[in-house]
Computed example of a mutant assay.
Amino acid sequence: MEPTASSTALVSSALARLGIDTPPKHLSGRKGANTWRAGNWTVKTAVPGARGHLAHETDAYTLLHHQGIHPGVQHHHGEAGRWLAVPWIDGQSLWDLFAPAREGHATGEQRTLMREAARHVLVALEEFHDAGWVHGDMQTENVIHTRDGRIEFIDFDNARHLDLPLSHPYRGGLIHVIAPETAQQLLATADTRDVALTPHAELFALGASLFWSWTGTRITHYRGAPDGPHPDILTDIAAGRRRNLAADRPWADPVLERLITAATRPEPHTRSYRG
């Protein structure tokens, strides 16, 4: 969706503050919230009433910076809305990194890279949880594998910490990767009620995301269409209707399979970050 004049004015204000005189590249936008690439920054803008939770995300980045986990951001808000500028991360999403597997032409080197990236992202999530955080939307589009081999998480508008409770009710992340126990809570509560997200449930979400990225198939064996009504999808997830990784995998990889299987075990307390 093309940005409105008010959104364009917001990003222009951000560029002036950042000292950037080249036009930004519009990356995405929906309901008053937009994301741009500007120089070495990712800039997010939100007009009043926009979807999302940019104020909370700004607070999350600020706390991450104070903890030494993130290099820091720039931001501003006023009557016209708010903007947040985050240093651009040079790399590719985990979804894009696994694309050769889904497309059927992964080389031996790429297969090794996928296996090692899966190992590293699970360790990175463990460290993130140990620091007292849960991300809230753990999916492969929100995981960046940098060109120098590091793992970076992005999009913290649903993140929470003991020192930063959510500013809004949490209703799960990407539906196709949520844990069965999260699906059960969503089915049992109204849309205005907050549901708990534990590190174990978020670990499942990452494991399910790796399953999907590698195989091209969602982890749940749906009785209907994957784009069907949410209650039907949640019911199948809550029931633990799992697909068979050994049948869906593009090739045998005992290490990668062990990592995915351990992260997505049915019993939350038995899940493991390390296979």
Rank of each mutant, 00 (worst) to 15 (best):
I178N: 09
G228W: 10
A188R: 13
I178R: 09
A247F: 05
F204T: 04
L186P: 00
L186W: 00
A208P: 00
I219H: 13
G224A: 13
R171V: 06
E152A: 15
D157M: 02
L234Q: 07
D232I: 04
A246I: 05
A208N: 02
R171W: 06
G228H: 05
R242D: 03
T192H: 14
P231Q: 11
L164G: 05
H221A: 15
G173P: 05
F204R: 01
D155S: 10
G207C: 03
L234Y: 07
Q184E: 15
R171I: 06
A252S: 12
L166R: 02
F211D: 08
L203G: 07
W214R: 11
D155F: 00
H200D: 14
I175C: 08
A263L: 00
L197R: 03
I219D: 07
A159V: 03
P165K: 04
L203Q: 09
A247S: 10
D253A: 08
G173I: 02
S213Y: 07
W214H: 11
T261Y: 05
Y170M: 01
A238N: 07
L187W: 10
P231R: 09
R241V: 02
R242N: 05
A188D: 14
G172N: 04
A252E: 13
I260H: 06
A159Q: 08
R223L: 07
A183S: 12
R242T: 11
T264D: 07
R258N: 10
D157E: 14
D191E: 14
W212D: 14
P169N: 06
I219A: 14
H168A: 12
L203C: 07
N244E: 11
L206A: 09
Y170T: 01
V255S: 05
G228R: 01
R241E: 12
R218G: 13
D232Q: 14
P254T: 13
D191G: 13
R160I: 02
T261S: 11
I237V: 13
T235H: 07
D253K: 10
P226E: 10
H221I: 00
R218V: 14
E181V: 03
F204A: 02
L210G: 05
